[in-house]
Design a protein around this nucleic acid. Structure first.
Length: 190
DNA sequence: CGTTTGATGCTCT
DNA sequence: GAGCATCAAACGG
């Protein structure tokens, strides 16, 4: 029957491709994840965890399954799921997803989205669509009672998953720690 | 189409 | 004070 359950305590580079396919639920709706990026701990200069624990990054050093939400460019949020051993600071950034189920509340979260694709084809967009913000920072996505939760069952392969470099970085641009579902039109950029 | 630029506020130095 | 794991509007061809 159903697939294996994903083990979030594995390294972020193992978890990130495994999260292509599972569904993320938020207050405004749900979506199937089609694009992720892995961020490491101290060894990854692009990771917020690289310079050690700070008030902002404290959730990253918690146990696997913790949600790490931060504000970017003063107006958007990015949602990450902590992976690896507690204290390592690894996380997987959710960069894009395909809406599943009722999209009316998601559209209200993204009033500027003209096309259906613009609902959630980017990390800031999907947080607006699902209604995720800093108030959800530190929640555990494995908790069925959490406002933001993740279905941990591995999904049937929906197509080829491409591995490439991460987006928007000033350091670590060459590390190929981004994965996306090649067939999905919801991928943020190619 | 494609490329450039402005918005906007928190975090860490 | 500088720099963002971004997005959308404003440009130019």
């Amino acid at each position: 029957m159903g697939g294996e359950v994903i083990d979030l305590s594995q390294h972020s580079t193992i978890v990130a491709p495994a999260l292509i396919g599972p569904v993320l639920h938020g207050p405004f709706g749900s979506g199937r994840i089609v694009e992720t990026e892995a961020y490491g701990g101290a060894e990854d200069p692009a990771s917020h965890a690289a310079r050690g624990i700070t008030p902002r990054t404290e959730p990253m050093f918690g146990p696997a399954g913790v949600l790490y939400v931060y504000l970017i460019y003063g107006m958007y949020h990015c949602a990450n799921i902590v992976t690896g051993p507690e204290g390592d600071g690894q996380a997987v950034l959710i960069r894009a997803l395909e809406p599943v189920g009722d999209r009316s509340a998601m559209r209200r979260g993204r009033p500027k989205a003209k096309r259906e694709l613009d609902l959630s084809n980017g990390p800031g967009k999907l947080c607006q669509a699902l209604g995720i913000d800093r108030g959800h920072d530190g929640l555990n996505v494995c908790d069925p009672a959490s406002a933001v939760r993740l279905e941990l069952r591995e999904a049937e392969a929906a197509g080829d998953v491409v591995q490439t470099t991460r987006v928007g970085l000033s350091v670590g641009q060459d590390t190929p720690w981004r994965w996306y579902l090649d067939a999905s039109p919801w991928v943020s950029t190619r």
